[in-house]
């Protein structure tokens, strides 16, 4: 009976990290990303509409506020992936290496995706602001235009920030899973380094980064350092994952 339905014994054609990436993106991330924007954009539109009824001239972007959500929501998803998906991944016969690859690919893809959607939404918002005669400025209310430093630079800066946030999340998750609660908590500042580096150093060009103008220009080579820190953190993530023991009780 069952002999007829014998599955091909020749093995897979897709490498494990690709099938994991496929699952994570389709089952998890696209859904969550799209849901996030499907909620965030109408909420911003409604709030801005209400504010517009009561204020003569708006001087700060509404969309820019969603950056917080687009940063911290995937950050927490990245933690969850490390803590809950990693053991399932390995226990179902997939290598740790393929998890690391898939998780980092998710971080980059989702970071770029969110940055692109956010920038696109800002562009649309800018047109609306111009049409109604408002000032499309940063959230600090200084009146400096959001895209003061150029749209592409803004997009890249945002993508870097979102990616760094998720790398931090991935690291935090695996640190807690591997090292336990106490050491995991002690290691929190280290795990947050990518985010801190991008936030404080990489986005230091105050003029083009109005939404977080408090990130003063600490160093002229900040962006390079920030990128290096993110890459080093991805390396640390790999080192923590590569021989991690998956829980078993006996």
């Amino acid at each position: 009976m069952t002999a007829v339905t014998d599955a091909p014994a020749t093995g897979r054609s897709t490498p494990q990290w690709r099938s994991a990436l496929h699952y994570l993106l389709s089952g998890y991330v696209y859904m969550l990303t799209l849901w996030f924007w499907a909620i965030a954009l109408p909420v911003v539109a409604i709030i801005m509409f209400i504010i517009g009824q009561n204020v003569d001239e708006v001087t700060s972007s509404g969309i820019a506020f969603t950056h917080h959500g687009a940063l911290w929501f995937p950050f927490s998803i990245a933690i969850i992936l490390s803590v809950t998906y990693l053991p399932i991944h390995v226990a179902n016969g997939m290598t740790r290496r393929s998890f690391t690859r898939a998780a980092l690919a998710v971080n980059v893809i989702v970071g770029l995706l969110n940055a692109t959607i956010a920038t696109g939404a800002l562009l649309v918002e800018r047109e609306i602001y111009h049409a109604v005669g408002w000032v499309h400025g940063g959230t600090d209310g200084s009146g400096i235009a959001v895209f003061n430093g150029g749209v592409l630079v803004y997009l890249l800066g945002l993508a870097m920030l979102f990616i760094a946030g998720q790398v931090s999340g991935s690291l935090i998750g695996v640190a807690y899973y591997r090292l336990g609660g106490i050491i995991g908590t002690v290691a929190l500042p280290l795990c947050l380094l990518p985010l801190a580096a991008v936030g404080l150093l990489g986005l230091g060009q105050g003029e083009q980064w109005n939404p977080w103008s408090w990130t003063a220009d600490l160093a002229p080579w900040g962006t390079v350092v920030a990128v290096l820190v993110v890459i080093a953190s991805a390396g640390a993530f790999h080192l923590l994952v590569r021989d991690i023991a998956i829980d078993s009780k006996d």
Partner: peptide, 8 residues
């Protein structure tokens, strides 16, 4: 099915 090459 994705994870196991011989999954039926």
């Amino acid at each position: 099915e994705d994870a196991r090459p011989r999954f039926d």
